[in-house]
Amino acid sequence: MDLNAKNTSSQSLLSCGNGGGLSEKLLLRPRGGRSLQTERVPRSSVLERLQSFLPQMADANEKLKQQMEEAPEGRFDIENVDEAERVIEMVSVT
């Protein structure tokens, strides 16, 4: 293979579909001269619930952090389950 060979491109490879160019297929130049429009999407109820939940989560994290600082060492050790009433064990299957 000659590394000094000049790269050329084929116009037939750059077009797609039935005669339309690649740029037209990708809407780089909209047809008819009309511009692309953006529209506001209606507010989602899921987003509303998430926005009301996040402050509650932040408060819970702050309370947990404070409890961990005040509790005796090992109180929040998730690996120590000797005195736990119920334990959920995660098993990895390969």
Rank of each mutant, 00 (worst) to 15 (best):
S52P: 01
V91Q: 15
L28I: 02
Q67W: 13
E70K: 14
E69G: 12
D77R: 01
R29A: 00
D77L: 04
R75G: 01
E85G: 09
V41H: 00
N61S: 09
C16E: 11
L26K: 10
G19N: 14
T38R: 00
I78Q: 10
D59G: 07
D82M: 05
P42H: 06
A84P: 00
A84M: 13
E73G: 04
T8W: 01
K6C: 01
E73D: 14
R86T: 15
G17F: 03
G21Q: 03
S45K: 11
V91Y: 11
K63H: 10
E70Y: 04
F76L: 04
V41R: 01
L13S: 10
N7R: 11
T8M: 05
S35Q: 04
L36T: 04
P72D: 07
D2Y: 08
S12C: 04
G20F: 05
E70G: 02
R43D: 12
S44E: 09
C16G: 15
M90A: 14
Q11T: 00
G19T: 11
Q56N: 14
L26S: 07
L64D: 08
L27M: 06
D82L: 09
G33A: 06
P55H: 08
R34F: 07
D77A: 07
S15Y: 00
M90S: 13
E62R: 15
R43G: 05
A58K: 13
G17E: 02
R31L: 10
E69L: 13
R29Q: 05
K25S: 07
M68C: 14
E89M: 10
N80Y: 01
D82R: 11
N7W: 07
G21A: 07
K65S: 14
N4C: 03
T8K: 03
S23K: 03
Q56V: 13
S45D: 13
L54F: 10
S10M: 08
N61L: 12
S44D: 14
E69I: 11
K63D: 15
C16S: 15
A60F: 07
E39D: 09
N4S: 11
R29F: 12
R34C: 09
V41T: 03
K63L: 12
N80F: 02
P72E: 06
Q66W: 05
P42D: 09
R40T: 01
L13V: 11
N7M: 11
P30A: 05
G21D: 02
E39S: 03
Q56S: 14
S15H: 00
A71P: 07
V81I: 15
L50Q: 11
L28D: 02
S23W: 01
E83H: 12
A5L: 05
G21F: 01
S23V: 02
R75T: 15
L26R: 08
S35N: 06
E79A: 07
E85N: 08
V81Q: 02
V87H: 06
R40A: 01
S92Y: 15
E24S: 07
L26A: 08
V41I: 13
A58T: 12
N18Q: 14
D77C: 09
M57S: 14
F76D: 03
L3A: 10
A5F: 02
Q67H: 13
E70H: 09
S9Y: 06
E73N: 05
D59A: 09
C16F: 12
S45F: 07
L47C: 07
S12N: 05
P72I: 04
I88M: 08
E69C: 06
L3Q: 04
E83Q: 15
Q66H: 13
T8P: 00
A5T: 07
L36M: 05
L54D: 04
